[in-house]
Design a protein around this nucleic acid. Structure first.
Lengths: 330, 330
DNA sequence: TCCTTTTTCGCAATCGATTGCTTTTTGTAT
DNA sequence: ATACAAAAAGCAATCGATTGCGAAAAAGGA
């Protein structure tokens, strides 16, 4: 069913049908009704692509996520999608995977679809290749990066001061008289480097000797990964008094490992995660965590993108402050 | 940059450029190279909408999910998306929310976008309104419903025998000598009704007296919801020996509540969830759960939809068998 | 050199909408 | 009844691609 089919049956021109659909003036009430009845009769809906072609506007936005299954990313995407859908946009949400080439490929896909805005979810998109790809393929489209930043005239970024946050975590452990603190990071990403930097600064500030900076990198970012790394940390440093993990999920594995090895949490060892996720509320003891302001992050992202979609393309840099949520594990 | 701009600069007709882009024969190698160089120079990418218009194919598929944040739904969506993206399709994944009107509205959005296939994720889409909406707006598009079914010529469904699964859960508890078993369901959905039916059948089969069928409905589908309902169950039936929850997340709250109330799991009370989710592996003790075959479910859905996209529109009904995974909580 | 055959390329229609401009219809005043 | 303004509806171009068909150019043969 096209606009012409409707027009023919109504005995009018296609332009008239179009004006009825879009509630434009200059149509006799009688004609309008006749057309409307036919539209209803055939359940006519205009083709978004054809309309987009002439209107020069697709009403599409792309949301790129490295892995859509990561809870905090999908939560964030959910909020953004809700906001944008309410404004008549349609979101194409895609998992790119960690490889840079893949990310570039997905950016091309978004270009083909002529998206009018892009959300880059997570610091994993802070790479040269992505930057170059955006510059080449989407140079005039508003892009908002959640928890990261790219220095391009059309991309804005909102970042969370996770480094300071982790520093506060270290402080907290020291206040609890835990001075031998390890740090376990789950994957190599700019966000995690920042956290690591925060850990180092925190330790220095609290005058921990250089050789007590225990940095560990996980095999896999999962409960099992957390379990294994914790086992290893305790084996290599039986005197460890605290562990900070770069995400809650991993910390949960850590709690379990400590339990199994007879290191009661928090008495013998304090543990802290990052995310303020549901995992931390599930486990026993409940996990002390660094809230990375997910809700605020998504709201800001949606709002900046909205400005971009309305024409105000900008290169904005925003910062949000993370916050330690103290629970039972410290 | 359009195909005409490229054509003009190359001194050829647009049709020639098109043929180069699509690797069609009948173009002199020299001309081909000249055009290709220009395509590269300007990073030209064809407009998917314009192409779709003339090709009568959008290469779009829609994935509708009631709430994208639900872990097993997004996991399923991830797998399906990966499969379809690999085949050149672009997925529009949207959260509809639980209201029927909203679901219908999203179906209209998909119609506007002229999607070539639809995935309906979860039994919550088994409603008359959705059925009517599909019939009216997407009568010729292949639709696959994950864990549910609609009797329409263009929709296929894959369902899991969760009822039998729950029946087995009851059996398991009885084998462990737990005979006073409650059932807590998290939300009213066809899937949960099936589980409830399985519970009732299981109890009858094991000759539990009629008055020992304890059905509870949660306020909210969350850890807190599980905690609260469990508290209530134990308060109202201090002799309860087992609880089956309709999802793991809620069961995890139950374990915590039992712990707080001095009901050791599994000695005093056995607990079982559904989903085989990560939550069940995190908690202590690890949760016995009913695996609802997520992976197989998504693979089948993707494969049936693929057949539909290739022209074989059908009304297929498939069944998968769930499986009890016994862990520490029973 | 001329004619035929094959390559290579361009013209123009098409997909399904929207919109500026023109034409037709309607209504009002003289 | 005529003139004229205002309202209603139609014509045709446009958006950015693809493709059948025909024309021109190149290649081959006599």
């Amino acid at each position: 069913m096209t606009i012409y089919d409707i027009a023919k049956e109504a005995g009018v021109a296609a332009s008239t049908v179009s004006r009825v659909i879009n509630n434009k003036p200059g149509i006799k009430a009688e004609t309008r009704k006749k057309v409307q009845d036919l539209l209803k009769k055939y359940n006519y809906t205009p083709d978004a692509a054809a309309r987009g072609l002439v209107m020069q506007s697709t009403k599409l936005v792309g949301i790129l996520i490295v892995d859509i299954r990561v809870t905090h990313h999908i939560n964030s995407a959910f909020l953004i999608e809700k906001e944008l859908t309410a404004r008549g946009y349609c979101c194409i949400t895609m998992s790119t995977g960690p490889e840079d080439d893949q990310k570039a490929m997905y950016i091309r896909i978004l270009e083909q679809r002529r998206v009018e805005g892009v959300i880059l979810m997570g610091s994993m998109f802070m790479t040269d290749k992505v930057k170059e790809s955006i510059e080449r393929h989407l140079p005039k489209v508003p892009v908002v990066m959640v928890n990261g930043y790219l220095d391009l005239p059309n991309v804005s970024g909102i970042i969370v001061d996770e480094d300071h946050g982790i520093e506060q975590c270290v402080d907290l452990l020291f206040r609890k008289n835990k001075r031998k603190i390890a740090f376990a990071l789950d994957s190599v990403s700019p966000s995690n480097y920042k956290k690591q930097a925060g850990y180092c600064r925190g330790m220095q500030k609290n005058k921990a000797p250089e050789e007590d900076l225990w940095l560990y990198e996980l095999e896999e970012s999962s409960v099992k990964g957390g379990y294994d790394i914790t086992e290893r940390i305790i084996r290599e440093h039986p005197d460890v008094e605290g562990i900070i993990y770069s995400i809650d999920l991993v910390a949960v594995g850590g709690i379990r490992a400590a339990h199994d090895l007879g290191y009661p949490v928090p008495d013998r060892i304090g543990m802290i995660g990052v995310d303020n996720s549901i995992y931390g509320e599930i486990c026993m003891p409940k996990l002390t965590t660094l809230d990375n302001r997910l809700q605020a992050l998504s709201e800001s992202a949606a709002s900046i993108l909205r400005e971009g979609l309305e024409g105000k393309i900008q290169n904005k840099k925003m910062m949000l402050f993370s916050e330690v949520i103290e629970r039972e594990s410290t």
